[in-house]
Design a protein around this nucleic acid. Structure first.
Lengths: 143, 143
DNA sequence: CTACACCCTATACTTCGGTATAGGGTCAAG
DNA sequence: CTTGACCCTATACCGAAGTATAGGGTGTAG
């Protein structure tokens, strides 16, 4: 039944005290016990819950997603299935995001190359095609 | 010299009027001309500038990055080199982001598989290893 | 003249995950 | 008793890219 104060927990987990207050405020963790003078006293379970939060957060889940998982946990209905569904959903989201970023990258990269080749070997008309592609007009479209 | 009012430009470009005000406020576009009664009148160049903004934004540059490019443009010093530097920087950023997301995905995906195999073929101890991995303890860590 | 669509400004609010600040209380050492 | 480290609450603020709302003016058709 060892209990730690806010600063100690913060230190131990690499958070700031303010972040702990914040997590409490948004309902990610329950209000811990208090000492007679009002200091928070975090028990082992509180610290374990926070560790869990940090572990899952490091996996890339948002605080809201973690909160949802913890609600299941609090209701003792944290099943393998429930976790699986959430993780799978997250993996799908990541896949989508990765694809979108790759598409973007593949659109951008050729433009860089065009610029590069123009710089090393300017075309006769003195216009970089990438610049034209992007601005949609010539070098300076005032006209 | 056809000029469009706010709503018409918004409609044409798929923005809201509020967004146009916003772009003006943050200095992304100059204040357009006004009618005697104070209505904004967007000329061809204004619309072209907005199109450019949207085109580049769709490539994934932030409004700040676009603003920076437009400053060069306004100073008539929008060189191929300047564009190239910015684009290349952006491509590098995208590469980093993609790698981080992929690392995340590769950490998450095996957990989903573990859950899957547990669901189809529960282990004798009745515990899903992924769940154990994530929570750090058993199904319900109160103890 | 009135209704209605459209326009204007200014301000506040949104999401996300906190951080920063102000203003005060508690506790142990010296 | 005072100093200093720690703790508390409440509130405001950050970036990004807008959205929403309030409260008012304009322009035109009936």
């Amino acid at each position: 039944m060892n209990s730690l104060r806010t600063g100690e927990v913060a230190q131990k987990l690499g958070l700031s005290a303010q972040t702990l207050y914040f997590y409490e405020r948004i309902g990610l963790i329950p209000s811990p016990q208090r000492s007679p003078s009002g200091y928070r006293l975090f028990g082992d379970r509180d610290v374990a819950r926070l560790s869990f939060i940090l572990r899952v957060k490091a996996l890339g889940l948002s605080l809201d997603e973690i909160k949802e998982i913890l609600l299941l946990y609090d209701g003792e209905s944290l099943t393998c299935q429930a976790i699986r569904d959430r993780l799978q959903h997250k993996v799908q989201e990541l896949d989508q995001k990765i694809h979108r970023l790759q598409a973007l990258r593949n659109e951008l990269a050729p433009l860089v190359k065009e610029c590069q080749s123009f710089l090393s070997q300017p075309s006769p008309d003195g216009e970089c095609s990438a610049l034209r592609d992007i601005t949609g007009i010539g070098g300076n479209q005032d006209a």
